[in-house]
Write a protein that binds this DNA or RNA. Sequence first.
DNA 1: ATGGTTGGTAGCCAA
Length: 263
Amino acid sequence: MKIATWNINGIKARHDVLVEWLKQAEPDIVCLQEIKSVDEAFPGSELEALGYNVATHGQKGFNGVALLSRLPFDEVNRGLAGDDADEQARFIEGVFSVDGQVLRVVSLYLPNGNPTNDPRKFDYKLAWMDRLQAWATDRLTLEEPLVLAGDYNVIPQAEDCWDPAVWEGDALFRSETRSRFEALKNLGFTEALRSANGDSGIYTFWDYQAGAWPKNHGIRIDHLLLSPEAAMHYGGCAVDKYVRDWEKPSDHVPVWIDYQLAS
DNA sequence: ATGGTTGGTAGCCAA
């Protein structure tokens, strides 16, 4: 079973590319970020015709996350706990039944955090990561398969970008950001892509600007974290880099894991 | 090279 994550940078602009990739890649569960759409404007019925159940947590203009799944949803939870005043749509959890076992999959869009001198940006990002840490700590007590997938806006290590000097001081690479991501992993998560590909030159995002894609000036910021129970099903990970060469691409590409079933 | 491009919006802001 294929579980994928992809920041599509706008469902309206990415509709055709998304449908084409779904047909080619045939993922079973897809975590989408930056749908930049309200729930009513999301092309749910069309994606349902392709065989997917659809759950969205949308917002006008910015942010917005969604889950597509060939499995029916047993439950959907929208929004990250810990701040009732937070109106940004960045978190959706789907609960599924697989082989008689619970499987939880989260699509998250972690705040960018720039500029770092703006507390509404950087402090919000760090607070969001602290809330995620608390939520994950609580969820892990269930001892269930849990996949935390999405655009983390975190460059975990220097090897995860073309030129670390360029990212010095950036919210994606600041020590406060990286230490929080490390703390999250240290709860017991397995980071899928790193374990599959080693330690350098694997990117998931290339900026539209300054010829970043043809020069391969990328960063690795889209991650899938697996709980110990999910890691037992882990069968590999891949980056669908070819999609970045399509017409009207997102600046991110899909990343997916092979989630092996017991049978 | 302190630039550059894209998406959603009609606020140029967010990335």
